[in-house]
Every structure is written in structure tokens, then in C-alpha cells.
Design a binder for these strands. Structure first.
Length: 413
DNA sequence: TCTGGGGTCCTAGGACCC
DNA sequence: TCTGGGGTCCTAGGACCC
């Protein structure tokens, strides 16, 4: 049996944890640049605030209803997520941390799954303050279904026998099935397939032909045949990307270079943290796709590197070179994407006799990491990243670093 | 003025090799 | 009328996830 634990309205719950005065009140959390809504407390959902709604369009409504608004604060959420996962790990030998707020784990060999899940749930809530729901079923796809049902029940739902499962699927909307996205849902709805139960009654061959093996796996999982195993060890990453919209549009190449340098440096840091090196660096510029009238331009360039690297100096240099190659005057750029592909572990690097590895550059990178870890991200930068970063993120409603910065720690009394 | 960011998997088609 | 066959690798694009 598989269990899925999912934190309720995770980001909103994290913000509320440190502001108990907000209990019972509506909360929303905004995306980077305070762009749109990415998390809502139940009270905010009840007000009819849609997921993904652009902030500037609903600002008045939020003010009228006294909704508490927060900029997203991933350091805080990451820290609280780790606490939840640590607690869950005490209850099962096999766990898969699936995302920042979700965790699959095996309950095979356990008895009285309802009572055990209730205990897990109350322990996590007690120890972390984050409310969670648990769904249990014979496959991952069914555990997802159970989890949705748990949210509407008392926080735990176990689906075990065939009759119980049929019942649960009978009125389960097709578009809510894990793995069926907008495109497939639209198509299936047109064919009159509206529920999970109708979907699994389609012939398997049809599903396989029209929705590839991915669809066939979901189909089998809905019949209780497990096809998606627990992933207890993470596969090594294949790509890594730093991409972020600017606080305001950029037209000048000098500012684009700064931003690209800055993103490349951040990317290099992420690579080093995961002990990976990249063979190819890609740079992409994007104009604002929502600006109907403005001219659009989405150039990109992949730069093969002479040797796999993760050092900031090399990657920043390449990113700037990329921007210079693809930049064209006359556009209002909204975003730059720096992507590293063909990643390999640091330990597997084949030395190139001619270019080799520069220990000096590696030492610079290491010093950067250590200084920034101690004094805070971005304290020491490469000069081309610029000092006055006019394009940097807008985060007008950022909460304090309650758990990750001594200066922001909660004071009692 | 303002509309997120970071990933994975699968397939099809082209290039290339023997 | 005829123009091999089979394999691998790479890339682009689509679909999906949280």
C-alpha cells in the first residue's frame, strides 16, 4: 500500500505559522515579482480567489476582504518542508519526497492503516504546526485520489477494497487525476469521459494508442495495478535552469548582461551545491508574451563548453557572450533564462590535457560559496553582475526569515 | 506598471554509422 | 521498375507535475 502525505495550502500555512493572529483569516501567497497567486488558505479559496490570478487584477478585491498578502519566501518554506519530511520518515522505512509539500511512502506490512495514518497526521501537526492530509491506496495514482478525498473528510482516507475504490472513482473528475493534464482532459471531456471510472473503463489499447505509455500507466494504476514505483533515491539531475522575470522590463544590453551574469552565477552555485558540472550552457532572452502590441522576440543559443565546469567565472563569461550574440536592440525584454544541460557529476570529469581545470578559478568559486553562505546570498559577487541591479525581483510583502536568520528569529516576552 | 519557476518523461524525425 | 536494414544519438516539441 502507498500513502501520500500532502501539506494543506502549504505556503499559506507556513506564513500563518508565525502569525497566529491570521488563524481563520484569508491568506494568499504571490509568485516571484508578486506576479500572481500561487497559494491560498481555505478562507481565501472560499472568497473565490483563483489560483494563478494576477495580483494587479485582484488587488482591490483582496483589500476589500482584508486578505493577508505575502511574497513567496522559498527559504522559509524549504526549511519547514524539511521538518515535515523528517517527521514523516520516522513512520515508514521507504519514503519518497515528491515535492516541497508532498511525500509518498510505503505502508506495506502495516496493519490498521486508518489508525496508523491518524497517528502520523497528528504527530506531524503537533511537531511542526503544519496541517497535512494523508491518502492511502494500492497505487500512487489511487493514493492521490484518496488524498483529495481526505481533504474533504477528517484528513485521512484509506481506499482498500475494489468496491471502495469504484465508489471513490465514480464521481472523481477526470481532470483531477494525477497525470491527466489540461490537454488530455479537454479531449476526454469532448468524448464524454468525465470521471475516473469512465476513463478506466475505456479499452487499454485505445488509451495506449492515444495517450502513449504514460496514459496506459495511469489506466493500470486506476485498476489497482502498481506501475509507478516509489523513488527512494533521486535520479541525478539532467538539466538545471535559472530563469526569472525582471522587476521591470529591460531594453539596454548592459543591464541584460548584468542579469545574465547574475543568473549564471546563481546557477553555478546550484551546480556546485549538487556537485555537478555542465557541458553546455544555453542562454535565452524573452519579451513579455502578455504585451499584445509590443514586438516579440525569443532568441536562444546553446554554447558547448570546452570542458565540463561549475565555476562561476567560466559560466558568467559564457552567459555574457551568449547575450551579446543574440541581443537585438528595440525590444523590451522581460526575462532571461540560463540553462545548464548535459550535466555530469564532478567526480566523473575527464580532464582535458590542453584546457584542463583551473584550480585558481575553482578556489575563487569556493571562496564565493563560503562568504555567501556566511554573510548571506549575493554578498560577494562577480563584478559583471553589477551593484545596482535595477531589474531585480519585486518582493513587497516578504515575511521575515523566521527560521533561517538569527536576526529574524521570533522573540518571546 | 504589474501575468512564476524549475523540473521530468515521451515521441518523432533527422543525422549518422556499419 | 528498381534504390538495404538496423541501430544509436541528438534535438525539438508536447504534455505533465508541483
Amino acid at each position: 500500500m502507498f500513502a501520500l502525505a500532502d501539506c494543506n495550502n502549504f505556503y499559506a500555512s507556513c506564513e500563518r505559522l508565525f502569525k497566529p493572529t491570521l488563524i481563520g483569516l484569508p491568506i494568499v501567497v504571490l509568485s516571484n515579482n508578486d506576479g500572481c497567486v500561487i497559494a491560498r488558505s481555505n478562507e481565501a479559496k472560499e472568497l473565490g480567489i483563483a489560483m494563478g490570478a494576477p495580483y494587479f487584477q485582484i488587488r482591490e478585491k483582496l483589500e476589500q476582504n482584508n486578505v493577508a498578502v505575502f511574497s513567496s519566501h522559498y527559504t522559509l518554506y524549504g526549511d519547514l518542508s524539511a521538518r515535515v519530511m523528517t517527521n514523516l520518515a520516522r513512520f515508514s522505512p521507504d519514503i519518497e519526497v515528491y515535492s516541497i509539500d508532498e511525500c509518498f511512502f510505503s505502508l506495506s506490512g502495516f496493519s490498521d492503516l486508518k489508525a496508523y495514518s491518524d497517528k502520523i497526521r497528528s504527530t506531524v501537526i503537533q511537531n511542526t504546526g503544519i496541517p497535512i492530509s494523508i491518502g492511502v491506496a494500492p497505487t500512487k495514482v489511487l493514493a492521490k485520489v484518496a488524498n483529495k478525498k481526505a481533504k474533504k473528510a477528517d484528513g485521512v482516507m484509506v481506499l482498500e477494497g475494489p468496491a471502495e475504490i469504484s465508489d471513490a472513482l465514480a464521481n472523481f473528475p477526470i481532470e483531477d487525476i494525477w497525470g491527466i493534464g489540461r490537454a488530455h482532459a479537454t479531449r476526454l471531456l469532448k468524448l464524454g469521459i468525465e470521471t475516473a471510472d469512465q476513463f478506466r473503463k475505456l479499452p487499454e489499447e485505445w488509451v495506449r494508442r492515444e495517450m502513449t505509455v504514460v496514459g496506459a500507466r495511469i489506466w493500470n494504476e486506476l485498476w489497482g495495478m502498481s506501475c509507478i514505483p516509489l523513488k527512494m533515491v533521486l535520479d541525478p539531475k539532467k538539466n538545471m535552469c535559472t530563469s526569472r522575470a525582471f522587476g521591470k522590463p529591460i531594453e539596454e544590453i548592459s543591464e541584460l548582461e548584468q542579469a545574465a551574469a547574475s543568473y549564471a552565477s546563481r546557477l553555478a552555485g546550484k551546480l556546485r551545491r549538487e556537485k555537478l558540472c555542465t557541458n553546455v550552457l544555453s542562454v535565452k532572452l524573452l519579451t513579455n508574451r502578455f504585451g499584445d502590441s509590443a514586438a516579440q522576440y525569443f532568441p536562444s543559443l546553446s554554447i558547448p563548453l570546452d570542458y565540463p565546469t561549475s565555476n562561476s567565472v567560466d559560466l558568467v563569461k559564457m552567459a555574457i557572450r551568449g547575450v551579446r550574440r543574440i541581443y537585438r536592440r528595440g525590444y523590451r525584454y522581460q526575462k532571461v533564462e540560463i540553462m545548464a544541460t548535459q550535466l555530469i557529476p564532478e567526480s566523473e570529469i575527464q580532464m582535458n590535457v590542453f584546457t584542463g581545470h583551473s584550480t585558481k578559478k575553482d578556489k575563487i568559486s569556493k571562496a564565493l560559496d563560503e562568504l555567501n553562505k556566511y554573510y548571506g546570498a549575493g554578498t560577494v559577487r562577480i563584478a559583471s553582475e553589477g551593484i545596482k541591479q535595477k531589474w531585480s525581483l519585486r518582493r513587497d510583502f516578504l515575511s521575515p526569515h523566521y527560521t533561517t536568520d538569527w536576526n529574524d528569529i521570533i522573540k518571546v516576552g
